[in-house]
């Protein structure tokens, strides 16, 4: 599949933003979030900006962005519509939670719970868009939803940990909690992603079933068109195996291994070194997960490619 920059940015940024607000809401619900205005501004404004710019960037992907509101109508059948509805509904508790925290010096447990629920439901809907696309085996399998949720929570936890240290806002206990959550979520996220990368690679269909022709070998000898058409531009994208392997290594190193090492080495500390390590871990992880997301699209193979002998 064509790795469109707008969709890669949307899924990565909104995944991170929703993960960040989900953890803020969960910790607030358990009374573990420090009531610190600067932290509230840092965490919630970042989360809301990431989610909003992600959604705006996904609008740029549309052929007719001015009609985007229509996407709210078909929630009965369409996961994309459900995602849009969930994303908009989540703004309500998230704004209340952020507003109360920043302006009223109040951490609302109820708004926190609903923010976390809304955030996770939205990420779930995003994942289900891909999970339900039968022609693309790399997406339409049981690994897609766990990976989206896990990577959202992993990036969110790592960023929340970095914010706590950067604002010097957390008690030793809070920093320990966020650090532990981040450190546990990284191997969990990697395990799930690895399972997705190595999931049954047989395609959803074969050239035999796609054409209804028998025969041991069916070779495409002539395309219907001489230049690349919409189908090939959108769904015939190919990434060289050599590059895919290298990019998986980069995604693994930056998305999982480097942040894990940085957090483990500085675990239990709240000094400038731990802060610098946490911020670096958060940034490197976001870059690594962007590479992961690029591969998620670029490596996905659509059955229409079969007709072109690809």
């Amino acid at each position: 599949m064509h790795p469109a920059a707008s969709i890669i940015f949307f899924t990565t940024a909104s995944g991170l933003g929703y993960g960040l607000m989900a953890w803020a809401g969960i910790l607030a619900a358990f009374g573990q979030m420090p009531l610190h205005r600067g932290l509230g501004i840092g965490v919630m404004v970042t989360a809301l900006v990431l989610v909003s710019t992600g959604l705006l960037s996904s609008l740029l992907h549309l052929g007719r962005p001015e009609r985007a509101w229509r996407a709210l109508s078909q929630w009965r059948s369409s996961w994309l519509s459900r995602e849009a509805v969930a994303a908009i509904l989540t703004f309500i508790p998230a704004t209340v939670f952020a507003g109360a925290w920043i302006f009223l010096d109040h951490l609302s447990r109820l708004a926190g719970v609903f923010t976390a629920l809304g955030a996770l439901i939205t990420v779930y809907c995003t994942a289900m868009i891909y999970r339900s696309l039968t022609p693309i085996k790399q997406w339409s399998n049981p690994t897609t939803v766990p990976v989206y949720l896990a990577l959202s929570l992993m990036t969110g936890a790592t960023w929340l940990h970095a914010f706590l240290l950067a604002f010097g806002a957390g008690s030793a206990r809070t920093v320990l909690i966020t650090g532990a959550v981040a450190v546990i979520s990284i191997p969990a996220g990697y395990t799930l992603k690895r399972r997705a990368w190595h999931y049954d690679p047989t395609p959803a269909a074969t050239i035999q079933s796609a054409t209804g022709l028998g025969g041991t070998d069916i070779r495409s000898v002539e395309w219907p068109h001489t230049e690349e058409n919409f189908l090939l531009k959108e769904m015939g994208y190919r990434v060289a195996r050599k590059h895919a392997e290298r990019l998986r290594q980069i995604a693994t190193g930056a998305g999982f291994i480097a942040p894990l090492l940085l957090l483990v080495v500085t675990a239990g500390r709240q000094d400038w070194l731990a802060t610098a390590a946490a911020i670096l871990a958060a940034i490197v992880m976001a870059a690594g997960i962007t590479v992961e997301r690029w591969l998620f699209f670029a490596e996905a193979k659509h059955t229409v490619a079969l007709y072109y002998g690809r």
Partner: peptide
């Protein structure tokens, strides 16, 4: 009504739908 999100073209295994980049609709 089409917003040109192209998701339907991804959902079709046969490549039956084609996007009109000029009109911005499927």
């Amino acid at each position: 009504l089409c917003i040109g999100c192209k998701l339907c073209s991804w959902a079709c295994p046969y490549g039956a739908r084609e996007f009109d980049v000029f009109e911005g609709v499927m």
